[in-house]
Amino acid sequence: MTVPIDIDFDFRKDSKCGDPDVDSPKLYEIHKLLWSKDLPNGKKFTLEIKRGSSGRFLLKNNFTMNLSSDRMCPHFDGNYRNKFYGSLSDNELEELKHKVRTIGGHIVFPAHKKNGFTINQARGVNRIICDRFDLTLECIRRFYNNEESPLTKTITNYKDFFDLFVDFKGYVDFFHLQDFVDQNGQIEFSLPFDNFNRPPLPQTINEYKKYMEHTLELMNNRNKRILKSLTSCQYDT
Rank of each mutant, 00 (worst) to 15 (best):
S69Y: 02
N195P: 00
H106C: 10
R81S: 15
L216E: 08
K99I: 04
K50F: 08
V166K: 14
F161I: 09
L33H: 03
K209V: 11
H214N: 14
N82H: 11
P110N: 05
R56P: 00
P192N: 13
D23W: 08
I103Q: 01
F76R: 00
F162P: 12
F196I: 07
M72Q: 04
T156P: 10
L59M: 06
T156H: 12
K16G: 14
P74Q: 01
L33I: 13
F9N: 02
D131E: 12
D194R: 02
I155L: 09
Y235Q: 10
G105H: 04
D70N: 14
L135S: 07
L33N: 03
V125W: 04
M72L: 08
Y85G: 05
N145P: 01
K99V: 07
E138M: 11
P40M: 05
I49D: 01
N220R: 05
V181R: 12
N66Q: 14
D163M: 14
P200E: 03
Q178P: 04
K210V: 15
F165I: 09
C139V: 03
Q183W: 13
G78C: 05
N120L: 12
V3P: 03
P20E: 14
P199E: 06
F9S: 05
L33A: 09
D10I: 01
F133Y: 14
I128S: 15
F196L: 07
L230Q: 05
L151N: 00
T154I: 12
